[in-house]
Nucleic acid binder design. Sequence first.
DNA 1: CCGTAAATCGCATGTAGATGCGAGTTGGAT
DNA 2: ATCCAACTCGCATCTACATGCGATTTACGG
Lengths: 209, 209
Amino acid sequence: MRIRVAIVDDDAELGANLRSLIDGAGDQVCVGTYPDSDSACKVLLRDPPDVVLMDINLGRHSGIDCVARLKAVVPQVQVIMVTVYEDTERIFKALSAGATGYLVKREVGPELLEAVRQVMQGQSPMSGHIARKVVEHFQKPRLAGNSPEDLTPAEARVLDQLAQGYMYKEIAANNGITLDTVRTHIRSIYQKLQVHTRAEALLKYLGQS
Amino acid sequence: MRIRVAIVDDDAELGANLRSLIDGAGDQVCVGTYPDSDSACKVLLRDPPDVVLMDINLGRHSGIDCVARLKAVVPQVQVIMVTVYEDTERIFKALSAGATGYLVKREVGPELLEAVRQVMQGQSPMSGHIARKVVEHFQKPRLAGNSPEDLTPAEARVLDQLAQGYMYKEIAANNGITLDTVRTHIRSIYQKLQVHTRAEALLKYLGQS
DNA sequence: CCGTAAATCGCATGTAGATGCGAGTTGGAT
DNA sequence: ATCCAACTCGCATCTACATGCGATTTACGG
């Protein structure tokens, strides 16, 4: 069974190119190309393909909205963004909306066929620099933050669990220490973090203020 | 100039294999292998390589701690985790600590050499399933979500201030309402958010913006 | 006009969290 | 040997938070 692929791109020429590329692969077949979000949704919601290749820049509605609409109804469809945009904003919005792959257009070619196979296998094909931006998203908080890490190992462990919503008694049980010891650690943490409540500690530890 | 690569892995045999793999590539050279975090940091902090291949499972200190120590002093070093662990927890911790690549051990081979080149070019090589987990992190909120916004305006206002660390009495004063009214709103919020403590509410509210 | 949703307020009770004070143990550095 | 930092535990007290139950007012749509 060939992988059923749909294409949403307002550039007719590029859409046609993608189509022949897909159909050229033995294991994939293009089941439709659509120039805008509305026409795409109308058909794809009824007869969902396995994979959708989505351009971001569609006329009225952006491709990101289209992703959201599709995933809301048929969450099993795999969406790969195929676009020229590399700005952080669009990348995150697309991923949040439900896309699982993100390729920049200048890299389309055989890699695209491979990317289609990969999303079907539970992977997330991304162009190299896109992946880096995604990874950096996890690092910013830590790096941008001041350095509240004169916390001792035990304190850090407690804070981490505190930040996951555990109650004092749960933290005590998790670590085989008493409730009073948890209190002691938290006392030190609050002092070092310059806070007086759990909520403030969470804010400092998670985001930063 | 060949890319200088260091290896940190407590499995001597695997370390040696990696070394010969690296040295076998024409454009890379292994400048050292270390079995634990301490010995690695001692040398690498003075004479930083371009790239570090890091195992997570080192004896006493985890490789994640080692990453944090290295990046804190020499942030320009590129770290690629090379490990058997694929659980979400470890992946995020490693990336947060400053790793920019994450490969699972069963996929090491020529891909590793390519990964080294990629991190030097500002990319983030990741094994396919790892990338997917990272991407899902952006989607979880929407998928796992109950509806965050059937909150009434008043409730939303209260929640927002709650999430900024204000005490009940401060929220009451800020909005010209009584403490009991604040309690009432928060009661509704908790019900709608399916939580029972302030900490959980904060996590839900902040975690899915 | 009536029902409903939203917003407001009150009271009571129980649990979780914050903090002051004290103190014993241990591994490592001087 | 000594000291210190980190970790541990206990108790008491006060404040903040969570929740059950009830109640009034206002605004909007049927």
